[in-house]
Amino acid sequence: MISTIFAFINAAIIQSIPLLFGATGEIITEKSGNLNLGIPGIMYMGGISGIIGGYIYEHSTASPNAALCIIIPLLSSIVGSLLLALIYSFLTVTLRVNQNVTGLALTTFGIGIGNFFGGSLLSFFGETGSISLIKTGQCFKASLPFANKLGLFGKTFLSFGFLTYLAIIIALVTSYFLNRTRAGLSLRSVGENPATADAAGINVTKYKYLSTLIGGAIAGLGGLYFVMDYTGGAWTNNGFGDRGWLAIAIVIFAIWRPTTAIFSSFLFGGLYILCIYIPGLSSSAKELINMLPYVVTILVLVIISMRKKRENQPPASLGLSYFREER
């Protein structure tokens, strides 16, 4: 029984990591007033970019170096995510296009790129079958050498690849950044009231760009984690599923707080796999459990709007573009 519980906790943590990356990235983005609904697409992009980088490296050398196995996919994933986030920023901030329209188009685009390259990458290199980067996957999964020696506790909490810890560290750093630094204060002001931020001498455009780019890169790591650590270097089209939307749900559920997002991700990750651990659950009930995260998110959204506590509201300018000389 105990071991089942620990196994469940372990699996929940694994499930929660892509969500946490996505949620943290979206929180940073939304704090600048950009509702980036392209995050699901960016996460696909982060995943496939990592796959492409890893594939090219693993196939160009006979004996892949472990450090490069990590660095190359990591960098290529970040570059891919940045590229999409850049498209979003350019369209919504510089060209002031509607954020919802841009974000949704970006998601279509990103998922398209992911599935296109995921399905055709091997054929470009004259190979057949499905992508499987075993070596790279192993490098990403590599955990602390002594983790398994620490018994159940070690297995449950310390047996993860480095991206797991990175996700939590990034969330904590983001929380510190938003609440305890000058730049964080400025960023929040841009999302609350860009005209006021502008009058205070804050470069609204710069903050919107940077937060969307950095947020995109972080979210993309969620995709990378999924393809490298979770699936061990394999790609299946649409395998990432709707985790990107779940990440956006977590942002609301956590009321735009990165530290709360850590626990929310864990909770949502747990719900994602709960049915496997409850014996005798029918497959239909499983679908209902998968519905739960969205239902509770809606409830949270409704409750914060009813309670009207000012600190818990979405950033006030969320979804609106800013034009200084609007008259």
Binding site: T181, R182, S189, E192, N193, T196, G201, R310
Partner: peptide
Amino acid sequence: KLIDVFSAAENIVLGLEEEGKY
């Protein structure tokens, strides 16, 4: 030109690039 959800002190230092840690 004030941010409603910020405190007075936060509004006062907003956008200011002072030396040292915030």
